[in-house]
């Protein structure tokens, strides 16, 4: 089993390297391939069991898009083949069409039908809760961008509280087959044990999670909070 972590030296913001460390604890037998920006991605030659990329700075997005552009068609092929992928935070913008910046436009890989617009002085912080395949998923948001859909594409979460891709959008994130893009921080896999089970299942490796009872207790407590009408999203 192979998990490829893309550009961890750049794509590690907002606690999301916690997802990677947690996956390593979940899958101690798996090979974790950490591909740096100056290396040829492993997925270009061999499909991983999971491809993961975390949030990054706005300038890193430009570098990452440039590094992935030669492999765009291969990435599209792997998405189409149903290889599990997880793109967290503004990593999902890399797959989109355009990132509008204060200085102009950055062309994304064009694999997902959406654009994102940066508001570098207005940082959005909030909570989002929604459902995914019958699972309630929760997470935190901290971002400079909101997305705008430009074509049909399934969302990741049907939002029950909080903002979607943008305020008012009933869907958060994207899903194309087993490729998921979401702005939810957490780290999402630690905060949502049922979703982690789903992901491990798609990788063919579902099993009890480390400290599962404690993870579930934290999840239940948070679910109670997130369902409290007094809690501001």
């Amino acid at each position: 089993m192979t998990v490829e972590i893309l550009f961890g030296e750049w794509c590690n913001l907002f606690g999301d390297s916690g997802n990677v460390r947690f996956l390593q604890q979940c899958l101690p037998e798996a090979e974790f391939v950490h591909t740096s920006l100056t290396q040829r991605p492993r997925f270009a030659d061999a499909a991983p069991d999971l491809l993961y990329m975390g949030p990054m700075s706005e300038s890193a997005q430009i570098k990452v898009i440039a590094a992935l552009r030669p492999h765009r068609d291969r990435l599209a092929e792997l998405i189409d083949r149903g290889v599990p992928m997880l793109f967290i935070g503004n990593a999902c913008e890399v797959l989109g069409q355009v990132i509008e910046t204060p200085d102009g436009r950055v062309e994304g890989l064009g694999l997902l039908p959406f654009t994102a617009k940066q508001e570098m002085i207005k940082r959005y912080n909030g909570l989002t809760m929604g459902t995914f395949e019958g699972i309630t998923v929760m997470g935190f948001r901290s971002q400079f961008t909101f997305g705008k859909r430009t074509g049909p594409c399934d969302g990741f979460l049907k939002v029950t509280r909080g903002a979607g891709l943008a305020p008012g959008d009933p869907w958060e994130g994207f899903r194309v087959k087993e490729c998921i893009g979401t702005y939810l921080l957490g780290p999402i896999l630690v905060v949502n044990p049922a979703f982690t089970h789903w992901l491990l299942g798609r990788m063919g490796a579902d099993r009890p999670l480390p400290f599962e009872a404690e993870l579930q207790k934290a999840y239940d407590l948070r679910l109670r909070e997130f369902n409290d009408p007094k809690v501001k999203f």
């Binding site: 606690g15 999301d16 916690g18 912080n125 935190f140 921080l185 780290p187 909070e225 999203f233």
Partner: peptide, 9 residues
């Protein structure tokens, strides 16, 4: 609200 705990990681 509910604190964003991602910083713990």
């Amino acid at each position: 609200s509910s604190e964003n705990i991602a910083w713990l990681y």
